[in-house]
Design a protein around this nucleic acid. Structure first.
Length: 505
RNA sequence: GGCAGGGUAGCUCAGCUGGUUAGAGCACGGCACUCAUAAUGCCGGGGUCGCGGGUUCGAGUCCCGCCCCUGCUACCA
């Protein structure tokens, strides 16, 4: 049994969750549920990044102390993911004591094992007194701060702790080349390789003026730079520095957004190398959800809220849409029209209706009991092909392909129904053939309940129960797909799994 | 500007090392069926494959140029 430790990016606690965050959490949950189905021992972590200047400012704006503010935000994120049927094993927050201990120990470890990796230096940059922060060249307009164009930027120096990132490029490059550290999808790997080949620069990892952070070990005047702090969460959640963290660490996958690829593929591995800890096996950087073609982010206020999207057709439907339509590779678009089309076609008229008609026939002709008959050979053969394609796609994080393969079985089944016409068999008294047809359909629904579970866990379970099965479909395990044990089961027609939307007045 | 990826039916996308009339799903139109959530099945209309050159017996598929889109271009997460 393999171990599968998956993390998602911890979200920055300066605003509410949006659809962009949602894709990642739901995508991760889908992968984890699939691995569970495969029999892996999974460990799935989500959480919050709660330190840093922007959080402190957001708290101040809200009239709250930082801790009170992040408590509130954290609760909001957590309940949002729970409502979307995510199944994390842990919820990590960077303001927790365990994380403070982890960051402190992580830095001490570097200080002990590779003291050269850390040094005190001068950070020099353009400082905006209005914002009270350093500005990057790229942030400036006409050489001025956008927020305070009336002020002159001051060239200032600050004593900082630095991390000698520059020395780790070759080793990271080597880890990627050897496959020990995988960066996916390919487009992201190419980006990272380019950066590494171009050489890394040292980075400052402490801040002197931002009290909302973890004190820098040995220098209480400074706090740990928020990214250095945040990245460590992945190993904190594994239990570091307590004994036994290596049961989970290294992580099998860090699932992140493409915008933070560099931090996860350059800075984080370098930090781990400096601390002499194993690198994660893989970073997967997904694309973004766009709203009508425009980027969805905390800065664009026009975007759909997660609540309204989930309320539209329920949480299962939102998960399904994001996974089927956007997926984890490229960017994808969210529109109400498209969402409604997918919902109606794939869920209501597709899976929902298939379950409805199949179980109605089972009830009508066999009192709901699944006949123990040899399944239809052709239908069975196609189903095995779907299962294989599904597994192949899901293994490669291709959730779109996985959903496509699973839902192709819906079409297969509908075709099978029309071809065999069980109602005609019943009329003609062809009992053996009717048994075969109904038994084949039950097997198909059984498989669909399992294969759809990573996407629509709530509805998959409802289907599972209506098939007279106990527990949840993931628990049935991968091998039960090949040979569903459903003959003799007492089924019941479920309430509409996916009601058709009311026609607009 | 540099680097990377992409521009194929109304929409989302497949099209491997070039080869007969360019595919799928959704949407749309017609027919069939009645077990089902007026659902399903079958058939069909629909594309100058970004633009212009070139190589070739033959090019979405290779080469050159151009246009457009997206991402990255390092201490905002």
């Amino acid at each position: 049994m393999a171990k599968f430790y998956l993390t998602t990016a911890i979200d920055y606690a300066n605003g509410d969750p949006h659809l962009g965050h949602t894709l990642e959490k739901v995508g991760a949950d889908c992968l984890v549920r699939y691995r569970r189905l495969r029999g892996d021992t999974t460990y799935f972590v989500m959480g919050m990044d709660e330190h840093g200047q922007k959080v402190a400012m957001a708290a101040e704006k809200a009239g709250l102390a930082p801790q009170a503010w992040v408590d509130q935000i954290s609760g909001r994120f957590q309940s949002t993911w729970r409502a979307l049927l995510c199944s994390p094993d842990d919820w990590i927050r960077t303001t927790e004591a365990r994380h403070r201990a982890s960051v402190t120990e992580f830095l001490r470890r570097i200080q002990q094992r590779n003291p050269d990796a850390l040094f005190v230096g001068e950070y020099e940059g353009l400082y905006c007194v209005g914002c009270e922060e350093f500005k990057q060249e790229s942030q400036l307009v006409n050489g001025r701060c956008v927020e305070h164009p009336e002020r002159e930027l001051a060239r200032m120096k600050e004593r900082n702790h630095f991390f000698r990132l520059s020395t780790y490029g070759p080793r990271i490059l080597e880890a990627i080349a050897s496959g020990a550290f995988k960066v996916e999808p390919e487009i992201r790997r190419n980006e990272v390789l380019k950066v590494l080949e171009g050489g890394l620069e040292d980075v400052s990892i402490s801040r002197a003026r931002f009290p909302w952070g973890i004190p820098f070990p040995g220098d209480s005047e400074h706090t740990v730079y928020v990214w250095f702090d945040a990245l460590i969460n992945y190993i904190t959640a594994a239990g570091f520095p307590e004994a036994g963290y290596d049961r989970l660490w290294p992580a099998d996958v860090h699932l992140i957004g493409k915008g933070i690829t560099r931090l996860h593929c350059c800075l984080w591995p370098a930090m781990l190398l400096a601390a002499e800890l194993p690198l994660p096996r893989q970073v997967w950087a997904h694309g973004y959800v766009q709203w009508d073609g425009a980027k969805v982010s905390k800065s664009s206020g026009t975007a759909v809220s997660v609540e309204s999207a989930a309320a539209r057709h329920g949480p299962d439907a939102l998960r399904y849409f994001l996974l089927r339509e956007v997926g984890l590779e490229a960017d994808g678009n969210f529109t109400w029209e498209r969402f409604d089309e997918r919902y109606t076609a794939d869920l209501a008229d597709g899976l929902g209706n298939l379950a409805s008609r199949s179980l109605a026939m089972a009830a009508k002709y066999r009192n709901g009991v699944v006949p123990a008959a040899e399944p239809d050979a052709a239908f069975e053969r196609v189903s095995q092909e779907r299962i294989e394609a599904y597994g192949k796609a899901m293994d490669a994080f291709d959730v779109r392909g996985g959903a496509e393969s699973a839902w192709a079985m819906v079409t297969d089944a509908n075709q099978f129904i029309v071809q065999t016409a069980p109602w005609a068999l019943a009329k003609e008294g062809k009992e053996a053939e009717l048994d075969r047809a109904l038994g084949s359909l039950a097997r198909c629904l059984y498989r669909l309940a399992i294969m759809s579970a990573p996407f629509i866990p709530g509805k998959a379970r409802a289907l599972w129960e209506s098939l007279g099965q106990a527990g949840d479909p993931e628990g049935a395990g991968w091998t039960s797909l090949a040979e569903p044990g459903i003959a003799g089961a007492q089924t019941a027609k479920p309430a509409n799994l996916f009601p058709r939307p009311e026609p607009a007045p």
